[in-house]
Each structure stands twice: as C-alpha cells, then as structure tokens.
Design a protein around this nucleic acid. Structure first.
Length: 356
DNA sequence: AATTCGGGGCA
DNA sequence: TGCCCAGAATT
C-alpha cells in the first residue's frame, strides 16, 4: 500500500522516478516558501537552471521576502537581475511585490485568480506556485511538460499553436487528478526534472525511462519527431527569367555565372529579374523578337535560404549580334558539350528536355 | 494570432 | 549562426 496507489500510470511512474532520480537539492526547495518558489519560477522563465541558481542565491540573500522586495528601489532589483535578461520579468516582479503589499497583506496570495492578476504570472507560473508552495492540485504547462506530454500521448503539431496548447492543458489537467493529494509539489517538480534531464529534446534516455511503457512516441518510433518543431519562417521567394536561346545549328546559349553567390562560376542560362531587364539584354545581344518567346513551364528550386522560381523563355534560330561575340561570359554550346560543363542540375534537366 | 522581451548554451 | 530554454504581456 504505497502513497501513489490509485493514481494513473503517468503520475505513479513519474513520482517513482522522481524519488530516485529527481532533483531534490535546488536552492528554492530549501526552504520551499511561496516567495522563493515564485522568485525561482520567474527567473526560470526561458532561462535554464544552471544559469538561474547563482542569481537566485544572490537575490534571496539581498531581498529575502515579499516585503523587502516591495520596499526595495527598482534599481536594486534590476541590479540583482543584471545578466539574466528579460528585464521585464524583474520590473513585473517588483510591481507584483508592491501589489502584494497593498492587496494581500504583504504576502503572495494563495489563490489562482489573484496570482494570475499579478504581473509576470501566467497560468503555468500560477500553477507552479500553488502546487509547489501549497501542494494544491493545479497543473503546469511549461516547455518541459509540453515535450513530455507530446511524446507520451503522441500529440502532433507544434506545441506553440493555440489548438495544440489547448489539448496539452486538457491532458495536464487530467493527469493532475491522478496525483496523490500529498504529492503535488513533488509531481510538479518531477515533470520539470523529467523533461530537463531524461526526456530531453535531443537524445532522450528512453532506455532508462520509467514511463517507457506508457509512451506513444517510443512505441511508434517517433521520439525524434515529437514534439513537432516550430515551423520555420517561410523561405523568401525569388523569381527570375531564364533565357533559353537556340541558334540555327541547334546549339544553346549559356552564360558563366558570377564568381560568388548561388551557382558561382557555373554555366547557366542568361538570367534576369524581370521582363524590362530581359528585354533590354535581348535587344543589345540578339536584336528584335523578344516578344516571340515561348514561355516554358516554370522551374522551382529550393535553397537553404530561399526558394527560386525560374521562368524559362525560349527562342529558336537566334544569333548573337556581331558586337558581342567577344563577350567572354557567353558561349554557344552543343548538346554533346553539356556533360563536360558545370551546369546547375535544374538547368541541365531543362536543357536535356529541350535539346532532343 | 503574431510579435516582443533578450541572455546564455549548444549543435 | 540559428535554435532552444521552468512564458507572459502586448498589439
């Protein structure tokens, strides 16, 4: 008859893991007062434990309780925060302490909505304070918990999406009901320790995991895929015109690309950003007839930093004007010569389709 | 819903 | 470099 009887497997196994492998010596755990839990939670927003520990110790040594924080000049608070980043956290912390002095008798309120009304405290931080400081049955949902729940339950989609986050809160809420009443503080700490030290973003220790039989991602071999990564910003798109000119002998006009940049020094088709430029180039090098071009199917090509769409325009029976024959960057190329030249793959593919 | 805040660790 | 981390406030 152990203390976790009746809980769901997630809470039960997580607490068993925590008792053996969790972190029990973090400075805000001794003593675990509401003020120290609050301060640690604010400092730990978007900031790793290793970075926070020395700041926390300096801060509580200088400002050991809500009253001294509220009475301290903001400059002192910011000085203690200096180097941690996200200085709005420090300003909010200071303002919240003063609100506590006004509204709550100089202490942090033991009430979810009252906590949420304080600047710098959102739903997850309020849950962390109530559960860790008072043992109340309130869930949290930070980056660690999101990662763990996405894997355990096979939740797809970037956890930052509102719809996904809503699902994760519902799951977190459900799990909380399976936690033994006297273990909520440990449960909250256990989730964060578990995500930070075992169920890590990269190379999670699934072989050592106390929850490996509860994990959808492990069962389906999708641990590395979940949680779904944040979608990268859509790559910038660039468009260009590629001029495909055949002469009377069936050769094609290639141009050596500049020595730097994309496809540096390779042989490719003469390329222009718009019709005005292309028309001007055509007039100078070929002559009349720009508008007789046939527009071929566009070529899409992805690079690491942008997507390029090339619109090929094709002419047959073209000839270079006499005045540009010395242009070193231009060259008529027969089909047999193509394989001996450095040509970008999508251009080579196009040429092979158009040079039968 | 997207943006902003911003310091350090790490691939 | 770009991405990630015990998120919340702002627009």
């Amino acid at each position: 008859m152990n203390s976790t009887q009746g809980g769901d497997p997630f809470a039960t196994h997580l607490l068993q893991w925590f008792d053996v492998s969790g972190r029990h010596d973090l400075p805000w755990q001794h003593p675990r007062t509401p003020y120290r839990v609050w301060l640690s939670e604010i400092m730990l927003q978007q900031t790793q434990v290793r970075v926070v520990v020395p700041y926390f110790e300096r801060f509580v040594a200088a400002l050991p309780d809500v009253g001294t924080l509220a009475a301290a000049p903001l400059d002192d608070v910011l000085a203690l925060w200096s180097g941690l980043g996200y200085y709005a956290r420090a300003r909010n912390l200071h303002a919240a302490a003063q609100l506590c002095a006004q509204r709550h008798g100089g202490e942090l309120p033991r009430d979810f909505d009252a906590l949420l009304a304080l600047p710098g405290i959102g739903r997850s931080t309020a849950g962390a304070i109530l559960s860790q400081a008072w043992g109340e049955r309130v869930p949290i949902l930070d980056g660690n918990v999101k990662r763990v729940l996405c894997r355990m339950h096979g939740v797809e989609g970037w956890p930052g999406l509102p719809a996904i986050e809503k699902r994760l809160w519902a799951i977190a809420e459900a799990h909380v009901h399976g936690v033994p009443a006297d273990r909520m503080a440990d449960y909250t700490q256990a989730q964060m320790d578990f995500g930070a030290t075992l169920c890590t973003r990269h190379d999670p220790a699934c072989m050592l995991c106390a929850l490996q039989h509860d994990c959808v991602a492990l069962r389906e071999g999708r641990v590395e895929e979940l949680p779904t990564p944040k979608p990268g910003k859509p790559l910038p798109e660039r468009h260009a015109l590629a001029l495909l000119l055949h002469d009377a002998q069936g050769r094609v006009l290639l141009q050596r690309r500049p020595p730097t940049g994309i496809w540096a020094a390779l042989w490719s088709l003469p390329e222009h950003t718009d019709h005005d430029q292309a028309r001007a180039w055509y007039s100078g090098h070929i002559g009349d007839g720009y508008d007789s071009a046939e527009a071929l199917d566009p070529i899409a090509h992805g690079f690491t930093h942008y997507r390029l769409t090339l619109q090929p325009l094709e002419w047959r029976g073209a000839a270079l004007g006499a005045s540009v024959r010395d242009d070193d960057g231009l060259r008529w190329v027969a089909r047999d010569e193509l394989r001996s030249l450095g040509i970008p793959a999508p251009i080579r593919s196009l040429l092979e389709r158009r040079l039968p």
